[in-house]
Design a protein around this nucleic acid. Structure first.
Lengths: 191, 191
DNA sequence: GATAAAAATTGACCTATGGTAAGAAAACTA
DNA sequence: TAGTTTTCTTACCATAGGTCAATTTTTATC
């Protein structure tokens, strides 16, 4: 919990009441590698803040192939935002790629923090804005870069993630097969 | 201006002071087809709300190819959010695809509306959340669908946009060449 | 540390989409 | 509406990346 509170405090002034409220709606958890926190098709009530380890969210398409939407490591948030914000069942699965410690927060309760403690709004807004920026960049990258370029950029932007992931996780994030990623890695090593 | 105020009021209670403030920072404009509202490389200070017509934002890659990030029609917002929220120069160009009427708002001033009129926050937050959801969906579609499937989905999701755009605008949004889109359209017509 | 399971690599072949260039059609413009 | 420019289509070939199957390497488990 300290990590989350500190992160928030580095961005805004948080009254002790607000801090207490946050504590009251949060639950620290240890999850083991392979745990599924959100299951495609079920209702989504929680969002997760990562203290240590690595999680990912992905969907499974009609051919059974996985497509990774997001990785989350220390200090990142993860959930199925499509489900949460459109009140639908989960279209994503969120799983832990390592033994991880996370903070689980009920989304409805987190949402009422805005009316209870308006001071929290700017923090939340900034996070959303940064999120939008990163999504815009990812879409533009997907549109204009080749697979090897996207892989290079991934390694550059997220140097800390590779240690937690299997290659096929990364391939499914980049939008290529694991075989293609393997060939890209070989070509890269030869240079 | 009415359109924007009404849109906000359909979502939240807006005090007359807040409404007045909004008026004071907004400027209604008529722009003609082909006008460039934001130019790649320049500083970005405005965001735009569309009353009529159609705009798009796109980047130009190192080979001179255009990649469309977003279209905006009636009631949509558009700008270069990457530049605005990371305080960078524009990496996007925003142009009007038709004669359009828009509301131009200074982003810094719009941003201070939150401290001046906290009632505005939920409206802004909801918009951001919806935006995130649509971006997540777009990324997942790009990862799992073929080009013809993405085109079908585009027509289904944005039936009103096609009338304003050239095929190569849509192709550059879908991540394919205009030649490929042309072939897809032919194949579709034959069915 | 031996064994089993999972992941990564490799090779042969395939397919969707891209590139180029030319001509046809449509959309502006005078 | 004739002329010009832009956009769209089409044909042919090129290529990035996908598929499938076999093999090797790595990781997990007992």
């Amino acid at each position: 919990m300290k990590e989350l509170i500190n992160k928030i405090k580095s961005s805004i002034e948080l009254s002790s009441e607000a801090e207490e409220y946050l504590y009251s709606i949060s639950k620290e958890k240890t999850v083991s590698k392979g745990s599924v926190l959100i299951q495609q098709g079920q209702t989504v009530k929680k969002i997760f803040f990562v203290n240590s380890g690595c999680l990912r969210s992905f969907c499974i398409d009609k051919n059974g192939k996985e497509h990774t939407l997001q990785f989350a490591i220390k200090d990142w948030w993860i959930s199925d935002y499509i489900a949460i914000h459109s009140d639908e069942l989960a279209s994503l699965t969120v799983e832990s790629l390592t033994d991880s410690t996370i903070i689980e927060i009920n989304e409805k309760k987190l949402n009422s923090i805005h009316s209870l403690f308006p001071e929290f709004e700017p923090f939340y807004r900034k996070n959303l804005e940064r999120h939008v920026v990163s999504l815009h960049k990812r879409i533009l990258n997907q549109l204009q870069l080749t697979a090897p370029e996207r892989y290079d950029l991934f390694l550059e932007q997220y140097p800390d993630i590779e240690q937690y992931t299997r290659n096929y996780h990364i391939a499914s994030y980049l939008g290529i097969t694991q075989e293609s990623l393997s060939r890209i890695r070989v070509a890269k090593a030869k240079k």
